[in-house]
Simulated assay, not measured.
Amino acid sequence: MTDTLSPYMGRFAPSPTGPLHFGSLITAVASFCDAKAHAGQWLVRIEDTDIPRIYPGSEEHILRCIDAFEFEPDAKIIFQRDRLDYYQEILEQLQQLNLTYACQCTRKMLGSNHIYAGTCRELGLAFEHHAIRLKVTNQLICFTDALQGEQCSNLQHDLGDFVLKRRDGIMNYQLAVVVDDAAQGITHVVRGADLLDNTTRQIWLGQCLNYAQPHYMHLPLAMNAQGQKLSKQNLAQALDPQHASQHLQQALKALGQPAVELDRPYRMLQQATAQWDRNLIPQGGRIAGIYQ
């Protein structure tokens, strides 16, 4: 068990762009055990703002897996689709602070350049029917990740002003995740290393809104036989809720944790929490071995 007993609020925040797979389970198990090992609470949030990418039936599969693995969140599960008005309020706050602007640039106009040059920053375009970008500044943003060590980025040099709301009206992940983490009092974010490069822009947005900064732990990614991360895009196999106990054993093994006895998932999670040790999680961005 880890030795820090400060107040802890953790979360698991899957997106229903596909069914829950083994890589997602690793995140769910790690976030749950880390929270409970710190005598903390653990919440579940469904991140479903990207409506065109929602895969039919995936939300139901996620919720069925939460039940089958007997995770028992400490509060009612929330859905981001129910919070769109709140995100709009936050956007208007940022607009009043002159921290955002409307952008008419399309992907075709931007081409392959991934660093936005601020083309629309001084144009004063109307906010309706345009993308909304957050201004960044020329400064280094750093944080220390519990597994990946110190991470730094100068957003102006590495990314440029970034989108909070798309021109089609869909709220961007960066906005929704920061706003909801703050609203739910999240103190510790445990998620996959594929989201590591999002963190500095989320820290910057949180600073603009005077939010407390969470602690971060980015987990190494499980890979498939082709050396690709397990993901919905790579057609990772959906978890079978009927084999929840076996999947839990595999996930704990992938996380380098001591073995637990095959039992009801609830009891297995209790045992896993009692012997949870962050220091045993494999180092780096990938988990050795092949997982389905």
Rank of each mutant, 00 (worst) to 15 (best):
Q174M: 13
Q275L: 13
L252I: 08
R166N: 09
A274G: 07
Q275S: 14
Y291F: 12
P241D: 07
N224E: 04
K232H: 05
Q250H: 14
N198P: 03
L255H: 04
H188D: 15
P241H: 08
I281R: 01
L164I: 09
I281N: 01
A222V: 12
H218I: 00
I170Y: 14
G227L: 02
L280Y: 11
V163S: 11
R278V: 07
L195N: 11
S245W: 12
R191C: 01
S231P: 04
H218L: 03
Q207K: 13
Y266E: 14
R267W: 12
Q271G: 06
W204Y: 13
N279G: 12
I203H: 12
K232R: 06
E261F: 03
L164N: 11
A176L: 09
L221E: 03
V178Y: 07
P220A: 06
V179K: 08
I290C: 10
R191I: 01
G256L: 07
T273M: 02
G185P: 08
I170L: 15
Q246F: 12
I290P: 07
N172W: 09
W204I: 05
R166K: 15
N172R: 11
L164C: 08
Q174T: 15
G169P: 10
F162C: 10
D240M: 11
W204V: 07
A193L: 02
I281D: 01
Q275I: 09
Q250W: 07
G192K: 06
G256E: 03
A222S: 04
Q226R: 15
P214N: 06
Q242Y: 09
A222E: 00
Q275E: 01
I203P: 06
R264H: 15
Q174W: 11
L255V: 06
Q270A: 15
P282V: 02
Q246A: 14
H243S: 13
P258T: 10
R166I: 02
H247K: 10
R267S: 08
G284I: 01
D168M: 13
P265G: 10
Q213P: 05
S231E: 04
Y211P: 03
L255C: 04
Q213D: 00
V163M: 09
Q207I: 07
G284A: 04
L196D: 00
L248F: 00
N198T: 15
L252F: 05
Q174F: 08
Q213M: 14
D194Y: 02
H218M: 05
K165Y: 08
K229S: 07
C208G: 04
Q184M: 13
K229Q: 06
L219A: 01
V189T: 04
W276K: 00
K165G: 12
E261C: 07
Y266P: 00
N224M: 04
L205W: 02
M223Q: 07
M171W: 15
Q246T: 13
D180R: 08
D168L: 06
A183G: 14
N224T: 11
L230H: 00
Q174P: 08
L280M: 10
L252S: 05
L195E: 05
L230A: 00
R264L: 15
I203Q: 08
A244M: 08
C208H: 02
L221R: 05
V177Y: 01
Q257D: 03
R166H: 12
I170G: 13
A193I: 03
A259C: 09
D194V: 04
K229N: 08
M268C: 09
Q283P: 03
P220Y: 01
I287E: 00
A238W: 03
L239N: 01
I170P: 03
